[in-house]
Amino acid sequence: MDATVQHTGEEGATWGGGNQPLKASYGKLMMWFFIVSDALTFSGFLAAYGFSRFKFIDSWPIADEVFTHVPFFHGNYPMIYVAFMTFILIMSSVTMVLAVDAGHHMKQKKVIWYMFLTIIGGAIFVGSQAWEWATFIQGDYGAVETKGGKILQFVDTDGNRVALRDIATTIEGDRVTHESKNGIWYDDEKELSEFTIQEIQAGFAASPNVLIRTQTLTERGEKTVLSREESLKRLNKDAVAIVEGANLRHNEYGTPLFADFFFFITGFHGFHVFSGVMINVIIFFNVILGTYERRGHYEMVEKVGLYWHFVDLVWVFVFTFFYLV
């Protein structure tokens, strides 16, 4: 060991090492590094969403008409549930920062309690997110798709939405789902929807009070409603398929890109919340076991706290760009 220089005589000097210009520990700085890079990842996704939205600026779905459900309640409540989710996440951020504060004062009992509340808040949020997805995938009123991939929805003369099942008439037919065992190439098709496009067309012709609403937005930011003649023409000439709910290829609420970005961005965020909950659980047990009490400081709680607040920070932006703007 004598071959290496142990002391330079510059300890404490600016370049002697051992001084911390940012006055933060290694672990905290690394967490900030990660947060900056993750923030750039999320802004990449949100900017891509903005790109696609600007591309279809005159026909993008209206979020208020897409997310209108609240669990256990019937009716039309736009924004309410997502506002609740936002509040839950902010609340769990508050309990997290209270845990950090209790950690600074070395109050183990309080840290345990606040970490527990944070985990519960995170779990409620992830559950709500799953419910939101399920509702979106299942769909609402249903719509038909045209040859050009555009969505046509049905409204009555007052502008209220009309569901496919309220329009469709039954036409007797023997069209059955094609299964892989019947074909040469072992292909099957996805489950047939309850109605055929012919049933919708016949039903629409028979209900004079129903009109078609296109994807195109008016000056005032509302969807364009066609006249009865135009509606009949559009439905009989262009409509090719039934769309119920949303997936990566079809979306009854409008352009499939909306669904793609919704699944991708809220999914990526939900995954962050999920991993945040997992990390919080690990730290929670460490706190219970007294790891940080023995270590003499609760900086680990502060570090996972940074991550947890970051997840909340991202949600604030996701909330704005998916649900408000």
Partner: peptide, 17 residues
């Protein structure tokens, strides 16, 4: 970085529109 990215992508999206 975010301002730059957003500016570039939104301008391009508007052009494609």
């Amino acid at each position: 970085l975010i301002c730059y990215l957003v500016f570039i992508l939104l301008t391009e999206g508007d052009y494609i529109f």
